[in-house]
């Protein structure tokens, strides 16, 4: 783990889907990387934005304290690739269930017919 400033991280992603705007990440960050966005996103949340990426020391404290699994420090391409793999292997196989759910809602179930 690097603790020097300016070693650079590729990105800090904050999810629109998951972030609820509690700002525990901002509280947890010792290096003042974040600021609160001026704009509300489509869920009505003013998300934290990593405006000072160059200050990030890769300590990941923001990740640890985010209760909503909404934020991730992505250090480099390597990590991005690993994330993609995890998504393919663990998450993707289950996603057709969402369509199945919608289908049930739309088409109904046999025991309610007649």
């Amino acid at each position: 783990m690097y603790m020097k400033p300016g070693v650079g991280v590729k990105d800090i992603i904050v999810s629109d889907k998951l972030c609820k705007g509690c700002y525990l990440c901002i509280w947890a960050c010792p290096w003042d990387v974040f600021e609160i966005s001026k704009e509300r996103n489509w869920r009505g949340v003013k998300k934290p934005v990593a405006v000072r990426l160059d200050q990030c020391r890769r300590c990941r404290l923001c990740e640890f304290y985010c209760p909503d699994f909404a934020i991730q420090v992505i250090i480099d391409e390597e990590e991005e690739k690993m994330l993609k793999e995890v998504e393919e292997k663990y998450e993707k196989p289950w996603l057709p269930r969402v369509e199945e759910r919608d289908r049930i809602v739309k088409e109904g179930v046999w025991w309610l017919e007649d």
Binding site: R97, R101, I104, V105, V109, W111, L112
Partner: peptide
Amino acid sequence: HDEFGHRIGTDHAAANRTIRRLWY
């Protein structure tokens, strides 16, 4: 819950499906 076992909150259509099947 719905057919997946997921808690459904106030989705009355899903509740209707589940309760009626348990009865029928």
